[in-house]
């Protein structure tokens, strides 16, 4: 059963955004992909605050692809906030990052990120990775029981 809920992509780099979108599409994921461009927007989106008060979709997205190097709030800070909030503590969050800094990886796991994925420079590898991640979290993985 394919999860048809939205996917939230938090990415400030438009080129990465385009490439990610392309990769997800080519992985045949039909879900709607919402994109926000910084950490604060991501939180606003998920908690329906600020610009996103009264967001139409009543559910949380099926997964969040969260870049670490973000303006305003970094991806790690966003993750920490999501995990400390009951509403989002089980939300699948996949950290997507250019870096392979140990600190970032450690922090991500400490805050219970569901995955830590390095964005490879090589496009085909990148596309394959994003596609696999998408398929895994949307099709393979069973979400926590709904409340």
């Amino acid at each position: 059963m394919i999860n048809t809920k939205n996917i939230l992509l938090v990415e400030d780099n438009p080129q990465d955004e385009m490439l990610t979108m392309r990769a997800l599409r080519r992985a045949n994921l039909i879900n709607q992909i919402d994109v926000v461009r910084d950490g604060q927007q991501a939180l606003d989106y998920l908690f329906r605050e600020g610009d996103f008060i009264g967001r139409e979709d009543p559910d949380h997205p099926a997964m969040v692809l969260l870049d670490i190097g973000l303006p305003r709030l970094s991806g790690l800070e966003v993750l920490e906030r999501l995990r400390s909030d009951d509403r989002t503590k089980f939300l699948p969050v996949i950290m997507l990052t250019s870096s392979d800094e140990e600190y970032d990886r450690l922090k991500s796991y400490e805050n219970h990120a569901n995955s830590f994925v390095r964005k490879p420079v090589d496009f085909s590898e990148f596309a394959e990775t994003v596609g696999r991640v998408g398929v895994y979290w949307l099709a393979t993985n069973e979400p926590p029981p709904g409340r």
Binding site: N13, S98, K119, P120, V121, F123, S124
Partner: peptide, 21 residues
């Protein structure tokens, strides 16, 4: 170093990605 790691790769990825696309 962090910026190098993070930010230098993004354009590379774009170059590689878009040429691939």
């Amino acid at each position: 170093a962090y910026a190098v790691a993070h930010d230098l790769r993004a354009p590379l990825r774009a170059m590689s990605g878009f040429s691939h696309a």
